[in-house]
Design a protein around this nucleic acid. Sequence first.
RNA 1: GCCCCUGUAGCUCAGUGGAUAGAGCGGCUGCCUUCUAAGCAGCGGGUCGCAGGUUCGAGUCCUGCCGGGGGCGCCA
Length: 537
Amino acid sequence: MPMIQDILTSSLRGALVALGVDPVPDRIPVERSNRPELGDWSSSVALAAAKASGRKPRDLADELAARLGADPPAYVAEITVAGPGFVNFRLHDRWLHDVLTEVIEQGEEGYARYDLGHGERVNVEFVSANPTGPLHVGAGRWAVYGDALCRILERCGYGVHREYYVNDRGVQMGLLAASVAAAKAGRPTPEDGYKGQYISDWAAEMADDADPGAWAPQRAVADIQGALGALNVTFDTWFSEKSMVESGAIDAALTDLRASGLVYESDGATWLRTTDLGLAKDEVILKTGGEPTYLLGDLAYHRDKFTRGFTRLIDIWGADHHGHVARLKAGVRALGHDPDELEIVLGQLVTVERGGEVVRMGKRSGTFVELAEVVEEVGPDVARLTFLLQSIDTRQTFDLDAVVSKSMDNPVFYVQYAHARIASIGRVAGERNVPRYPLEMVDLSELTHPRELDLLRSLGELPEVVADACRTRAPHKVATWVRELAGRFHGFYHDCYVMGEGVSHEQTQARLWLVESTRIGLAIGLGLLGVSAPDSM
RNA sequence: GCCCCUGUAGCUCAGUGGAUAGAGCGGCUGCCUUCUAAGCAGCGGGUCGCAGGUUCGAGUCCUGCCGGGGGCGCCA
């Protein structure tokens, strides 16, 4: 399909040159028409180049159409001019039939696989919630977004490494250990401690001679891993913050920072002169007493990631960490790295509602809904698509009642049902001994119904959708596309029988292949979202 | 005060600077004697927050204002 665009672009360029337009615009817009009655593709170049050509847009469009019409480019059946000066191209259906062939030839593995990354090694860090308790529902957004983005990056030629940063050190860890220990001993929760039910559950679980400081974080990590596993989200590395104290990585980072000349002592603490790096104020890296701050640990961690050979780091954070972005980037620069190699994606927060009321989330107060509970109730597919259908840039309201009680209406079933129907067609074809001939023996020009052509149009867009979703870090674009393809399939399924009375053998063959190409498209799209593609429902 | 995200149908949300702004849910109405009705089709529903600006052309880009969310810790 990009081929079509290239053909039309270069034809238009040639025609503009021949007409003496000077200068010819660098970019010649050729887009899919959203007005099917006017054509399949269209170009607005006559509007943009009118001035340079010394003609009215409409006149330039007419001349372009006449010139191109004299010797039409490949696939082009008709060229017309409409509106203020759009040049519209109607193509032979063959261009869509060629899409089908391409999908089948490249298959589930090969179709829509753009090499944008050229094997670049990317480290994607996501979730990284503190191991101070179970994950709450909102964390599911980062888990699912991050995982889907990784799948898309992989399909686009990046070498992806999924990583979870475990903040198993610092003030919050002390509070967690103290909270569990207090519960164990039957004492009241310490000030600012964690009060959730899970604290007493864990206290009961913990052996009497265990060290709460070591045991509790491990228990939390196990819990988090379980919840993420249920969502089909796994990581290559669980990176412990505490391990960097023992390994000397924190000291190494500190040494590098000192070498930058931006470190000084004041008020008993050690500071990084981030005002020299464009920030409004300096940052503490060693607290009074010598304890590393979160920033220093995070800097050591990012230094370590670069050291491991990644040339691009992507961090996915909730918008509540916005204040940390400039600090971390400044610190990365102080360590001698290009801050542009660190890409931070900020996702807007999730509001959880139940019974029309906002459920306030707080691990310390203990009032939160666990991700694991929700996933157990609705399953990973519903949970994943619910998160993935919406852009990460908008605040999401996760309505528990709607997601749970109306999970049957969840769009995921609409999409999966399309896949199941396709599988069913295959089963019935088997039962009825309907063979499927090799593609090269099948006459695809049988595919002329608007429903059939719409399916192929969607399939033809998939490579661009995937590439766009990759570039803009926007998995929801794949989710939107998958829903559209499913919708078009259901329409086809309703209007166009594949087998049976009134369907010619030739039509059956062409439609069997159309259905197979649709299955491939659904499987690719769902695979990128990490949603299963069932054969029956 | 400054910084980031956001405002599109009753609700939840899509919408690469292009022509007549879409989908799902909800409401009403049709469609199961051929492959799964978890489906299809139709009807109704909009000053794209407001005001300027850039452009041949703005829901989309810029500025300002208004509303919502988040941030500006020796918490993480």
